[in-house]
Amino acid sequence: MSRQSNRTSDSKKMNSELFTLTYGALVTQLCKDYENDEEVNKQLDKMGYNIGVRLIEDFLARSSVGRCHDFRETADVIAKVAFKMYLGVTPSVTNWSPAGDEFSLILESNPLVDFVELPDNHNNLVYSSLLCGVLRGSLEMVQMAVDVRFAQDTLRGDNVTEIRMKFIKRIEENLPAGDE
C-alpha cells in the first residue's frame, strides 16, 4: 500500500484535525484545572475572545469584504465567508427576530466536535464555547457589541448546532476595547 495517498486533500484535512485535536486537548486540560463546567465554559469563552480580537485582522486582510452596512450583512459575511474560511463549513442563517437584531447560525456539522463524545459527568459543558468568544471578540473590533450563545449542541443530543447571535449596540470608535 502506497503511503503517498492523496497528499493535498489529506494535508488540508490533517490541518483541521490538528486544530480539532488541539482544541480537544485544551478543553480536557481546562476540565482538569477547573472544578465545574461553568468555569470551563467561561475560560473557553475568554480565550475565544482573545483569539477573536486578533483574528479579525487576519480575516479582513484575507477576505475582500468591505464594511457591513447592517446586521443582516454581517450575518451573511460571518456564515458565508468567515466560517467557510476558517472552519470549512457554511452555516445557514435563520430565525431572524422581528426587530432584525437577532439571528441563528445553524451548523449541520461542527469541526470542533469531530470525534468528541462527552462523558456523563460533564452535563453542563458547552464544549464549543470558544466560538462564542471568537465571534464576540472579532465583532467588538468592528464596533459591534453582540451576545453569542449556543442554543443547540449536537454533543448534548440535539440534531444540529445552533448559535444564537444578538446585536446589543454599536461601540463608539474612541473607546478602547477591553482585553480580558
Binding site: 485535536l21 480537544g24 486537548a25 478543553v27 480536557t28 470525534f115 468528541v116 463524545e117 462523558p119 460533564h122
Partner: peptide, 19 residues
C-alpha cells in the same frame, strides 16, 4: 481511530463509546 481522537478518551483505558 475515532475513539483515539476523542479528547475525553485516555489511551490505554477500556473503550466506552456509544459510537
Amino acid at each position: 481511530t475515532d475513539v483515539m481522537c476523542n479528547p475525553f478518551y485516555i489511551p490505554g483505558d477500556p473503550i466506552q463509546s456509544k459510537a
